[in-house]
Design a protein around this nucleic acid. Structure first.
Length: 259
DNA sequence: ATGGTTGTGCGACAA
């Protein structure tokens, strides 16, 4: 079972690249963030025609997440629990069954800039809700993958120029500490497990020639329960997608599980 | 210090 997460930065603007990618790379499961459309605006036909079941949690103009799967999907849950008043579409979760069932969550963690301020407060509160949900998923003692745009640079080796991010919500000490708290529950960062060398950036800003300078950061992650980590056979970043036609500012990040 | 770019949707705002 191969699972890819990709912040597409607008599914309608990216429909060509996304359908080409689904056809060429054929992920079993694709977890998309920032679809930037309501559910009824999602281009279902073009993607369903490639053999994918589609489950969306959309929002007008901003945010929005989706699960695309060539394998059977069950028990879909929309919205991160813990705040009934939160209307932002940043979480969808489901069970996908290959040779065995895997619980998969697709998340778009708040950016949090500018920090300090209400947006940063929302980010940290959201991460605390994520921790509660992760704890419940871990308690099932089953294979589960929590993947998406975490908007957190976990360590200095995850940025080409860490000093440039010192005051940014993606790298502030409280953001990194909250990410570590997730890991300390017993979740494993798949790219870190397979590639402890650093680099492996997943995002390059559209501005200032960031891609041409390889001025990247690693903010898109797969966090695995121990039962999923036991099944992990590979993890990689599809870096070359950033140089393609009409790219997103993020690239796909993959895991392969023996499941 | 500022401005640089992209997407949504048509004026800002988010990133």
């Amino acid at each position: 079972m191969r699972i890819a997460t990709w912040n597409v930065n607008g599914i309608r603007a990216r429909l060509g690249p996304v359908t080409d990618w689904l056809r060429d790379r054929a992920p079993d499961i694709a977890l998309l963030q920032e679809i930037k459309t309501q559910d009824d605006g999602f281009p279902r036909e073009a993607i369903a025609a490639l053999g994918y079941e589609i489950h969306t949690h959309g929002q007008k103009g901003f945010n929005g997440v989706a699960i695309l799967s060539r394998l059977p999907v069950s028990d879909v849950m929309r919205g991160l629990p813990g705040d009934e008043a939160d209307g932002q579409a940043r979480w969808i979760e489901a069970t996908v069954t290959g040779t065995r069932p895997v619980r998969v969550a697709c998340l778009y963690l708040p950016n949090g800039n500018p920090a300090p301020g209400p947006k940063y407060d929302y980010k940290l509160a959201w991460m605390e809700r994520l921790r509660a949900r992760a704890r419940a998923i871990l308690a099932s003692e089953r294979p589960a993958v929590l993947a998406g745009d975490y908007n957190v640079i976990p360590t200095p080796q995850d940025a080409r120029r860490p000093e440039a991010w010192a005051q940014d919500a993606l790298f502030l000490p409280d953001s990194r500490a909250a990410f570590r708290r997730l890991e300390h529950l017993g979740l494993y960062d798949a790219i870190r497990l397979r590639h402890p060398d650093g680099g492996h950036y997943t995002f390059w800003d559209f501005q200032r020639g960031a891609w041409e300078r390889d001025d990247g950061i690693r903010i898109d992650h797969h966090l695995l329960t121990p039962q999923a980590a036991d099944l992990l056979t590979d993890a990689w970043v599809e870096r070359e997608m950033r140089g393609g036609e009409r790219p997103s500012d993020h690239v796909p990040v993959w895991v392969q599980l023996d499941a």
